[in-house]
């Protein structure tokens, strides 16, 4: 009797999991498998082309010093962007979760996710208008400060970082907000009763308890930023060549899918390696 009930429950669970996992199979696993296959080919298997299996695409990464240098640049930008997103996002989440109540909180949360409703390309492109020489930012600063201000931010790595932080900071705000608002108010009151001031409560109670949310946010930012290509391309100009844009070029410009696929897998492996190396430290700080 109990056995049959259990089996029925398992069946129901499978039925509910199936759509998501079937979708993941078709949308993620099969394309990835296809890419893995492409990355081992000498050329695209189209009609009229000769191809054979090879590791040459992976070797190309090591043969040219440009690829590792670009990968390093992408990882460096990803680290800086992740850090800036945490620094900018956590205070915002803290105020949203623990200070503001009621309707105004809803409105402010809506503002955080509002950018997701507009086209990402348009949002990033609007930064070029802000940052270009004599653009909105320069004009505004010139109006306030004496003399002509030329920040010279357009088409620099700084512009890329600004655009990426803009695109990804909502992830940190939302994950940190969820973690912070789950903290029982009586813990804060207990800490106050024990004599703790605001800074100590932040450092000893709020930050440690919100850490899982911050780490989730950091991963959500770091992984896609390491492979990003749109923001670097639009905002970086000549300085905007990154590992992500090189991969994109292989697919849309040079039409060298095998090399693009191989570079993608190298990026994937390196990012997974970084997360794996960081996970013992993270688990310790979460335990």
């Amino acid at each position: 009797m109990a056995d049959r009930g259990e089996r029925a429950a398992t069946g129901r669970a499978l039925a509910m999991l199936a759509p998501a996992y079937l979708w993941l199979l078709f949308a993620v696993f099969l394309p990835l498998a296809a890419m893995a296959w492409f990355s081992l080919l000498s050329d695209l298997p189209l009609r009229g082309r000769e191809w054979h299996l090879t590791l040459a695409n992976y070797r190309a990464f090591l043969d040219s010093p440009a690829y590792p240098a670009l990968l390093w640049k992408s990882l460096r930008i990803a680290a800086v962007v992740t850090l800036l997103c945490l620094v900018a996002g956590f205070p915002c989440a803290l105020v949203l979760a623990r200070v503001i109540r009621g309707r105004s909180r809803e409105a402010l949360l809506l503002l955080v996710i509002l950018p997701f409703w507009s086209n990402a390309l348009v949002r990033v492109f609007s930064w070029t208008i802000l940052l270009r020489p004599g653009g909105v930012l320069d004009a505004a600063l010139s109006a306030v400060l004496p003399g002509e201000v030329r920040l010279g931010l357009a088409f620099t790595e700084t512009a890329v970082v600004i655009g990426l932080v803009h695109s990804y900071v909502p992830y940190v705000i939302l994950t940190a907000y969820l973690a912070l608002q789950a903290i029982d108010q009586s813990l804060i009151e207990a800490a106050r009763a024990l004599g703790a001031g605001r800074l100590r409560i932040l450092r000893r109670i709020l930050l440690p308890l919100a850490l899982p949310g911050l780490i989730a946010g950091a991963v959500l930012v770091f992984v896609p930023v390491a492979g990003s290509f749109m923001e670097p391309r639009l905002l970086g100009g000549r300085m905007g060549t990154t590992f992500g844009t090189v991969i994109e070029d292989q697919f849309v410009a040079v039409f060298n899918w095998p090399l693009g696929a191989a570079l993608s897998f190298i990026l994937l492996a390196v990012v997974l390696g970084i997360l794996a190396a960081a996970s013992p430290a993270l688990r310790r700080s979460l335990g």
Binding site: D184, S186, L187, E189, A190, A191, R192, A193, L194, G195, A196, G197, R204, I205
Partner: peptide, 17 residues
């Protein structure tokens, strides 16, 4: 403020960290 009143408080939920 609370933190300078030198009180000890026990909460209904215990509020252990």
């Amino acid at each position: 403020p609370v933190e300078r009143r030198e009180i000890g408080m026990v909460f209904q939920s215990y509020a252990l960290f």
